[in-house]
């Protein structure tokens, strides 16, 4: 269980997260939605202990993320940021293999290598597995980073806009995989998405954020309403039932 209690974060004089409290139950896909600058990435980074909060507390399965040894936490919780730069020369395969570090501590076993191969195959990275990261397209690189994080094989996976740069097919494949992980292996997946329809079709829960606070949290179907979406995004969004999914339409 992820518990966020009264988390606040300020940059200079702007309050980016304002006393945020929420609970994410284990086993399931939770999507965080909200406009640019709502504080989604900041929240995810604080949960993933990449960023210290000014005040408040975050626990994962009762472990305080700021005080639990990093090596322990890295076996339970993995986080991918919105932007990922690496300044060193690195092949896709090496990057994905780094995902096994919390378990292997640098000595890859046959099982580790098999996990790496599986992830490379699933994300269709075989063709450029031995190419340097900076020689890939944006979407290919994004898939490599997600593959690395999923290789960590943690109970909790936090992904900041994993669909960035992905084409439609790879987006759907990625969401299916996340969903299957949650269903078959009881993993807890928390992701930030901008495409509300991906959030709607693939997540169990939605958290809607606005101006550094949580506006609503609940089962996806309950939150996919024109009223809520328009308050979150300041945009008129019609919601239709199509093939059993709630689909938001806002293009014209």
């Amino acid at each position: 269980m992820i518990e966020v209690r009264n988390v606040t974060k300020t940059y200079g004089s702007t309050r980016v997260l304002d006393d945020v409290s929420l609970t994410i139950v284990p086993g399931g896909v939770t999507s965080i939605i909200g406009a640019n600058g709502a504080g989604k990435s900041t929240l995810l980074s604080i949960i993933g202990r990449l960023l210290p909060a000014d005040s408040g507390r975050v626990t994962v399965d009762g472990l305080d993320v700021t005080t639990t040894p990093g090596a322990t936490l890295a076996k339970r919780l993995a986080v991918l940021r919105q932007e990922n730069h690496t300044s060193i020369r690195l092949s896709v395969r090496e990057l994905v293999a780094f995902g096994r570090f919390p378990h292997s501590r640098g000595r890859l076993t046959a099982a580790d290598l098999a996990t790496v191969d599986e992830a490379i195959a699933y994300f269709e990275l075989e063709e450029f597995a031995d190419r340097q990261l900076d020689q890939l397209s944006g979407g290919q690189r994004q898939r490599a980073h997600v593959a690395a994080v999923l290789c960590q094989d943690t109970d909790y996976v936090l992904l900041d806009e994993p669909l960035n740069n992905l084409d439609m097919r790879h987006s759907v494949q990625m969401m299916r995989r996340l969903r299957r992980m949650a269903r078959d292996f009881a993993k807890t997946v928390v992701l930030v998405v901008h495409d509300i329809n991906f959030a709607s079709c693939h997540s169990d829960e939605v958290i809607a954020m606005r101006d550094g606070g949580v506006v609503a949290q609940g089962p996806t179907a309950e939150l996919m309403t024109p009223e809520l979406l328009s308050t979150v995004f300041d945009l008129d969004i019609a919601v239709h039932d199509i093939d059993g999914n709630r689909i938001g339409v806002y293009y014209s």
């Binding site: 993933g48 690496t86 570090f101 640098g106």
Partner: peptide, 21 residues
């Protein structure tokens, strides 16, 4: 420290995620 330094070379956030202090 070499294995941990390899991870550290990926950048601070990657290192934290992979459990390197």
């Amino acid at each position: 420290l070499f294995p941990r330094l390899d991870v550290l070379a990926l950048g601070r956030e990657h290192a934290l995620n992979l459990g390197v202090d």
